[in-house]
Simulated assay, not measured.
Amino acid sequence: MNFIPPVAFRRLLGFAFVFVSASATAVPTYTVRPVGLGGSYGNTSAINDAGAVVGFSWTAGDLERHAFVHAGGNTTDLGTLGGNFSRARGINNLGQVVGSSRTSQGSELRGFLVDGASMAALPTPGVGSTASGINDSGAIVGSFWTEVQWQSLAYVYQAGTVQSLGTLGGSGSGASAINNVGDVVGSSSLAGDQEVHAFLYRNGLMQDLGTLGGNGSWASDLNEAGQVVGSSLLSDGATLRAFLYSDGVMTDLGSMFGGDSTASGINNRGQIVGYSGRPDFRTGGGFLHENGITYDLNTLLDSEGWYIDSANAINDRGDIAGSGCYRDYCGGVLLVANHPVSEPGGTLLLGLGVVAFLGRRRSRA
């Protein structure tokens, strides 16, 4: 029979309520749902707070790659601007979707907006454009190309006006995401075009976020508090690591498996998702980073047989858009967070249950 020493028993009694209370905020498990258009492969890009996911997928028969939105259990083909390719990159809480598509001209790429049922090309001051993000005010960010050496420049589009955000001194830049405050993140070349750094654009100024010691960094997403995530080269010039930029400091988030890692999304709770690889470059997996701890998403699934190879975006509820494989399927997935639920007074009752259980264990020793 197991025996709990008196001192240990008293400590367990003292900490029973603390332990139970902490378990109510434990990391959730996830139920995996495939999203896509029936083709052999696809991926996701963004998710809104209602759980609507956007991305791209091969169509049935693998004839073309189209942008899609998955909402309410149904996946909708968003079509193209006349070409054979489109990809959705962002969605806001109003359900407006942005991305890029080839036009009927074949090689021409244009940013688009889907507001309702139709896909409309966004105006561009250059010869081509992409759209990467949209906030709840309808402000859109992305990149456009000029005819001068196909220079790429970050932009914000709102109320019919395209505003170039400039660069950090180099010849090119691109924007990845915008929050509801109007802050924009992306990357830009420095003077001389020998380095590319992540930037935060705020109040008309583009701020260089630096690197983790290498000569390159790229910002992927930000939340309403202005926390930024992305990836950066380390001082060895070869290793890529996920980062969190907060309060003026860029922090290396490490790697689950010892290889490269990238951070793709962050929500307003500070939860971060991304990809972590192995040194052999052959395998990797999606991760969730929360409260300073990185979790392998494949250890948090309640859906058997799935393998999540990347996590691309996370909403404020904790639902995740990513990609994964199950048997013959490899493509976009929605990971629905299953949060622990406590009834009113449940923490106290459960705490008393722990005490009673420990008491029975002790009395039987």
Rank of each mutant, 00 (worst) to 15 (best):
V184D: 14
M250T: 03
L240I: 12
V114P: 01
V181T: 15
D62P: 01
G61Y: 06
L335Q: 11
A121D: 13
S363R: 12
D183K: 08
R87N: 10
G79F: 01
S217K: 04
N180D: 15
S104Y: 12
G286N: 07
W150V: 06
V97H: 09
G82E: 01
L37D: 00
L109I: 15
A175Y: 07
F281R: 15
R102I: 03
A365K: 06
L168F: 13
F257K: 05
D193P: 04
S342G: 02
L81N: 04
G36F: 09
F85A: 11
A175P: 10
V20S: 10
R10M: 11
Q227W: 07
R278I: 04
L190R: 10
V69L: 09
I293A: 14
Y326V: 07
G126W: 08
G142P: 09
R362W: 13
S246Y: 02
Y41K: 09
T239P: 06
G42L: 08
P5T: 15
G133H: 03
S23H: 09
G142W: 09
T283K: 02
E290C: 02
R364Y: 07
T283E: 14
S129H: 09
I47S: 00
S118P: 01
S40I: 01
L12C: 12
A52C: 08
G36R: 01
S152Q: 14
T146R: 12
P6D: 13
A198M: 06
L253V: 10
L153H: 12
F199D: 04
L234Y: 01
F144W: 12
L300V: 01
S176I: 04
A154L: 08
C325L: 02
A263T: 11
L352K: 07
N312H: 12
G51P: 08
S235Y: 01
T103Q: 05
N215C: 00
D62K: 02
V27P: 06
P34L: 10
G277A: 15
L253H: 09
W218G: 03
L348Q: 13
L297K: 06
F112Y: 13
G226N: 04
L94D: 03
I308N: 03
Y201D: 11
L300M: 03
F112N: 06
R65I: 12
T294P: 00
G166M: 12
N84P: 02
G14I: 11
E108H: 10
G322V: 01
F112G: 07
L350N: 09
A191C: 03
G285Q: 06
V53N: 03
T283R: 09
V18F: 13
S363C: 00
A71R: 02
G106K: 14
Y329E: 03
L240C: 00
V181N: 14
G258D: 13
G285Y: 01
I47P: 03
A120H: 11
G133K: 02
N215K: 09
S231G: 09
T25Y: 10
H70K: 01
L200I: 14
Q227A: 10
T146D: 10
R102M: 03
M206D: 04
S217T: 02
D62G: 00
L78E: 02
D49N: 15
P28S: 12
G82N: 08
R33S: 06
A131N: 08
L334T: 03
I178P: 00
L63R: 14
Y155K: 01
L109F: 08
Y30S: 13
D247W: 02
V354D: 00
G83I: 00
